[in-house]
Design a protein around this nucleic acid. Structure first.
Length: 859
RNA sequence: GGGCGCGUAGCUCAGUGGGAGAGCGCUCGCUUCACACGCGAGAGGUCGCAGGUUCGAAACCCGCCGCGCCCACCA
């Protein structure tokens, strides 16, 4: 035991020891009922970590450590989510490249702007270099490798008790096999299908996106009142924020009850500038009090257009190209009729090739010139849907995509959500809201490059047309497969792209389509059946509340589809870290706090203490002050342990002193509360209860028993010696899930083995120390009153500005007969702790203490 | 528009039917033999507002106000 214990160096010392001794290694020989498995969130490896990661992963680690100490064999893997758009975008910026799948692989390619990875992205002013898909994927892997090392270093410094031998990545061969195998199973059972249909589309990334990846952003727009021609030579006025879609108009709609437009419904209207006849129909979703009550349906301006298009069986008249520009249109061909083809061509030529915004500005000019714009456009602020990682609003583009059926499973998903135990329980509402609000099946294909490919090919007919209806599935032996380079069974490589040959599916799966299988990936479903049976269904999914609709929802869906059961029993939902102004931390706001320097400045235990103080599900403001408090607690644990354990006299066989027994009784209750809190995933409460008692223990109990602890006679010290061993052992273990480094340190001073494999303290063992004696209530009363009297003595000294060791001539404690009787059980300790020469008691109505200081007596 | 959560000391928050609390910050004091990375003491609150239930409400119920998050078919 060191003379002056310190926190410095404990992280390095114990992290190395834990690794060396395999303290956190998962023992797969353990029986199923003893296994506690965690579906760890694989953090998105984007090169930057922030303090929010530390926050929620600490919560999980505290629970993992608690369960491990309870005797469970904890399956706690780490995963890296490196697959997907964030990595692609980072690689593009970092290396100044762009992926072009039509280019052939160049084995000698070396990026020019590479800085070795890890650091901040270096925006390149130069035009990006186009490289092949394999070269691009290589760069993605190179960059994520260094990112993953940085993450692992951070987690080790933070003291996460993961088993690092179980680490997976979402782009690795294991994840690809599991993901592709699951997809093929869905395909075989008809739960996955492909369809050419209107799809949410990001025009910058040029890929489909899912409903779950949308977010609303307020954007200024303008409402334009536009005149359509009516059949009787009259006019029909509509209002729109998207006049550039007038050439894509396929109908006008009114509400069935709307008297104003009764004359129009059933007839036709003519688009301005383009002269295209469109039907005027009615539909109950039209809101009469919006605009003129007459609405233009385009293919496609928003999701409502899709609904109307589908329900009213309207034709498609699509003007938007995948790159977000207005496509060329062959006026005069079917679907592009006009009463005045020259005018339509002339008008459209002004728009063709322009971006949406450019086209909008231009068509407003054209409508103004033609007199079809009524009045001035009226500025409006409106919520526009964006892909959450995108910079321009999502559009709806018709394309062929893969879907997983979800709508037909809504009811069983709700039921599954109700079988799951949510912590905190109210988080389930978010899940149900989301499932109830689903408006389509889950689109999982992305027109991107760094992802898990769809493991299918298609036959080509003699004209090289792709026969999408007859996908050729990869075989189990081929997995993981890349259909852009691998060849389906029964074909040769030369037949790729040839008449009568084959073509690979060009798309990759959305990153959620793979990360929705983290329990199966971590548990190695289909790869290691014995392991999978040991860990699945998992005990807990820890995650933040913002991805309930994505990660949690999709994981439940996949598990229901593949295993027919819940992926886990519990969902432990954590909040966010907000900046001190209670705003969400985000890179764009520039308020992100990175964690490494915090760990260096305050120490891992202190940072963990702050994190563990954040209640489950609750957003917590970042506060360095709390870390200082955590550091104080860790230091206190060092010093109290030293006091309690250094050169401790021999302990007796039993706790005989009333105050010792009373302290242990209190401790027993806190152990019970702390355990109960942990069982309900309320780590914060478990910490708070232990901490509260610990400070009281240091301030009162340790001071009260100091005299006996240093007493030279073994009989006097025997009980307190035993009490100190018991209590320090319990406190050290109660704090071990939160402050693993300092607890391991103080444990090592006097115990064998790691504290993190020591048994969690039980109230029963403490109650056994007390025996069944009926005196315990009275003994607790003695401790309570002795502590209160000591506080009064301190108060007197403090107000007289005297040191705490100043002698007190006389103290009179007044209280009821019963309480005075109890106090006598602890009178000796009180006298000693307060440096009281004469301690008297008196019976009275209520508790009061009269203190006569030596100085006062002298004066 | 709907759902969920929150509103308690300057700050961060605990407290779910009976005494308004903790830590930090602030003020004052103390080299105390575990700890100056310390110890002791003190000031500081209309528990968002208004009703109701109850012997008794910070807590339970109703309404309102404010903040946050999520969702929705705002043309």
């Amino acid at each position: 035991m060191p003379d002056r214990p310190t926190l410095e160096g404990l992280e390095e010392k114990w992290a190395a020891a834990w690794e060396r001794d395999g303290v956190y290694a998962f023992d797969r020989a353990a029986p199923r009922e003893r296994v506690y498995s965690i579906d760890t969130p694989p953090p998105t490896v984007s090169g930057s970590l922030h303090v929010g990661h530390v926050f929620s992963y600490t919560h999980t680690d505290a629970v993992a450590r608690y369960q491990r100490m309870c005797g469970r064999e904890v399956f706690y893997p780490m995963g890296w989510d490196d697959n997907g758009l964030p990595t692609e975008r980072r690689v593009q910026n970092h290396f100044g490249v762009r992926c072009d799948p039509s280019i052939a692989y160049d084995p000698s390619f070396e990026p020019t702007t590479a800085s070795g990875g890890g650091g901040a992205p270096e925006p390149s002013a130069k035009e990006p270099v186009s490289i092949s898909r394999p070269n691009f994927v290589e760069l993605c892997l190179r960059l994520t490798e260094s990112d993953e090392q940085a993450f692992e270093d951070l987690w080790r410094t933070l003291g996460l008790s993961v088993d690092w031998s179980m680490t997976y990545t979402t782009i690795g061969p294991l994840a690809q096999r599991v993901s592709q195998r699951s997809f093929l199973g869905l395909l075989e059972r008809g739960a996955a299908y492909q369809l050419e249909a209107p799809t949410l589309w990001d025009v910058d990334f040029q890929t489909a996106v899912a409903q779950a990846e949308l977010e609303d952003r307020e954007r200024p727009g303008a409402m334009h009142r536009v005149r359509f021609g009516a059949a009787d030579g009259g006019e029909a006025l509509i209002e729109t924020t998207r006049p550039e879609l007038i050439p894509a108009c396929v109908a006008l709609l009114a509400h069935p009850d709307d008297e104003r437009h009764k004359g129009l419904v059933g007839g036709e209207a003519v688009t301005p500038l383009f002269g295209t006849s469109v039907p005027v129909l009615s539909h109950p979703l039209v809101e009469q009090d919006k605009g003129t009550g007459l609405v233009m349906v385009c293919t496609f301006g928003d999701l409502t257009d899709v609904t109307w298009w589908r329900e009213l069986s309207l034709p498609v008249r699509s003007v938007l190209a995948p790159d977000g520009r207005l496509a060329e249109v062959a006026w005069g061909t079917p679907g592009w009729e006009s009463a005045d083809l020259d005018k339509a061509r002339e008008s459209y030529a002004e728009l063709s090739g322009r971006s949406i915004n450019q086209a909008r500005r231009r068509i407003v000019e054209l409508l103004t010139e033609s007199g079809d714009l009524i009045g001035e456009p009226e500025p409006v602020n409106r919520a526009v849907k964006f892909y959450e990682k995108g910079d321009r609003p999502v559009e709806i583009v018709t394309s062929r995509q893969w879907f997983i059926k979800t709508i037909e499973h809504q009811e069983e998903l709700i039921a599954a959500g109700r079988r799951l135990e949510w912590h905190p329980s109210y988080m389930r509402a978010r899940f149900e809201d989301w499932v109830n609000g689903l408006n389509g099946d889950w689109c999982i294909s992305r027109q991107r490059f760094f992802g898990v490919p769809f493991p299918v090919w298609y036959p080509l007919d003699e004209q090289c047309n792709v026969i999408h209806s007859q996908p050729i599935a990869a075989t189990e032996q081929q997995l993981p497969v890349d259909p852009s380079t691998d060849v389906p069974e029964g074909y040769s490589a030369e037949q790729r792209g040839q008449p009568g040959g084959f073509a690979g599916d060009p798309d990759v799966m959305d990153t959620w389509a793979t990360s929705s299988l983290t329990p199966q990936i971590a548990g190695q479903a289909g790869e290691d059946p014995e392991l999978f049976a040991k860990v699945f269904p998992m005990d807990v999914r820890p995650q933040a509340h913002d991805i309930i609709r994505t990660w949690l929802f999709t994981t439940v869906l996949r598990s229901e589809l593949d295993q027919g059961e819940l992926p886990w029993r519990n969902a432990a939902i954590s909040g966010w870290v907000l900046d001190p102004d209670r705003k969400k931390m985000s890179k764009s706001k520039g308020n992100v706090v990175t964690p490494m320097h915090l760990l260096e400045e305050h120490g891992a235990d202190a940072v963990r203490y702050w994190a563990a103080s954040g209640r489950p599900g609750t957003d917590t403001a970042f506060e360095a002050q709390q870390m200082k408090v955590g550091r104080k607690l860790a230091v206190k644990l060092l010093n109290a342990s030293k006091f309690a354990l250094a050169d401790l006299p021999a302990q007796g066989d039993e706790l005989s002193h009333p105050l010792d027994r009373a302290m242990v009784a209190r401790l027993s209750r806190v152990v019970a509360e702390s355990s109960e809190s942990f069982e309900g995933y309320d780590y914060a409460r478990a910490l708070q209860r232990a901490e509260e008692l610990f400070w009281w223990y240091c301030d009162y109990y340790l001071e009260l028993v100091k005299g006996r602890r240093y007493d030279s006679s073994p009989e006097v010290a025997a009980s307190v010696s035993r009490a100190l061993r018991i209590s320090m052992s319990v406190f050290q273990r109660l704090f071990a899930p939160f402050l693993p480094f300092v607890c391991e340190e103080v444990w090592s001073w006097w115990q064998q083995g790691s504290i993190h494999r020591a048994p969690w303290p039980g109230a029963a063992e403490l109650d056994a120390e007390l025996g069944g004696g009926g005196e315990i209530e009275r003994e607790e009363l003695a401790l309570e009153i002795a502590a209160a009297a000591l506080a009064e003595v301190r108060k007197a000294k403090s107000q007289a500005q005297l040191p705490m060791r100043a002698p007190v001539t006389r103290v009179i404690v007044t209280d009821t007969a019963e309480r005075i009787g109890a106090l006598k059980l602890g009178a000796d300790d009180l006298r000693q702790a307060g440096s009281i020469e004469l301690l008297e008691t008196a019976e009275g109505e209520e508790f009061s203490v009269e203190v006569q200081l030596a100085e006062e007596a002298a004066a």
